[in-house]
Nucleic acid binder design. Structure first.
Lengths: 220, 220
DNA sequence: ACGAACCGACCGACCGGTCAGTCGGTTCGC
DNA sequence: GCGAACCGACTGACCGGTCGGTCGGTTCGT
């Protein structure tokens, strides 16, 4: 056996291409990223890229799904630490915001870039959104079962939750000089919990979160 | 005087191009629509298109802004008919859902297509979202002032509202065989009003809306 | 009343550039 | 010396924007 097992070098190169593509896609978007750009950033050539991947799409798809996997795993790990339904929801929310706050690029890829692609990818995006909103729906259903919240339309509510989260992250990504994403947590938490009918006493907390430092007012 | 005043013909042609572009952009997306496609659909030529518009961008921008104008105007008209803050919010929500329900293409252009464009348009989208969420924020602020809802972070809440609405419409647009969009109104209304702290008594209404006909469960 | 001059609207061939994907050839590890 | 890994010139398709030119109508000079 060699010091580096066969294909190890190759695997590493493949990873470098993936990393380069991730960075390129999440900063310039899918369509504005040329395969040559990826090759250059990965210090290889176009031919090298096409040795490891059949098409440009394939690279994108792989990135999307593995990135989503990582995020879902992170959320599930955080949720598993709690038992009480509302606390689980809070943990999930915190995990997502925390992850995005630390990895802006990940957020870009999952929530903005997706969109810069074409017809084909709308399906991909759709699946991603569906996946997340069903994850949320599951937690909401549990909460209803546990009588932590009143019975409600968990489908619509989960879509609303995901949409709210998505929009918040998107605005943070596009803001000129965004504050820390976590600053939005208390307010978002309150909004979402209230929307699901969590009793006001359980929400508690102050309504005023130092008045919107996340999106500082900017004069027109 | 001629029967048709001069320029009238020209104006009509310009309108045809705009219509064709609207349809093309909202079905195939910005990048997948060639100027030749627009010209063809408008029964003119590429040169004809470029006589009326300086660039492809310009067509898109004009469509975006006039479409948004129409929607905002419709909302404001609906809102003006009510005086009580919560009723105003309900009217706005109903107006938006109703409009989209009747004009899927409009929804596509404003909420999905936007996104199929490039770097430049992200700014455009950003402005659009900002415009709508500030519209919402205004109503929320009024409601707080009128003490119809407790004081809360209206910025975050308005973003959440817009995001929820946006996501719901997007899912409806992308669903294989969507039910009527209005079916989601009761549930969405309840979720949003609750999220803003509207008292449960004011929301009233049944929690069960014939169990999600909007997104019928489909087997994998 | 009539042709010359003019003009706005429109046409479509063409240019310049981009880019995904291909392929014949080279290098390197074993 | 053999095959996996890699290189980069090249192909073919696409597309936004340009431009010389056409044509039906209106105006003007006489």
């Amino acid at each position: 056996m060699a010091r580096t097992d066969p294909g190890e070098q190759s695997r590493r190169r493949r990873e470098r291409i993936l990393d380069a593509a991730f960075h390129a896609f999440s900063t310039r978007g899918y369509r504005d990223t040329a395969v040559d750009d990826i090759a250059g950033a990965a210090e290889t050539s176009k031919g090298g890229v096409y040795f490891h991947f059949p098409t440009k799409d394939a690279i994108f798809r792989e990135l999307m799904s593995t990135t989503a996997d990582k995020l879902v795993a992170k959320v599930e790990r955080a949720v598993a630490l709690e038992t009480e339904p509302v606390a689980r929801a809070e943990a999930a929310l915190k995990a997502v915001l925390g992850t995005f706050a630390g990895h802006r690029t990940m957020a870009r890829l999952l929530f903005l870039d997706t969109v810069g692609a074409g017809r084909v990818f709308q399906q991909e995006t759709n699946n991603l959104h569906d996946r997340f909103s069903r994850l949320i729906q599951g937690y909401l259903d549990d909460a209803v079962t546990a009588a932590a919240i009143p019975p409600l339309d968990t489908r619509i509510t989960s879509i609303a939750w995901f949409g709210a989260l998505n929009e918040l992250v998107a605005r943070w990504l596009l803001a000129d000089q965004p504050g820390p994403l976590e600053d939005a947590y208390p307010a978002l938490r309150a909004v979402l919990l209230r929307s699901a009918g969590v009793p006001e006493t359980r929400i508690g907390a102050v309504p005023d979160p130092a008045a919107g430092s996340l999106f500082p007012e900017q004069p027109r």
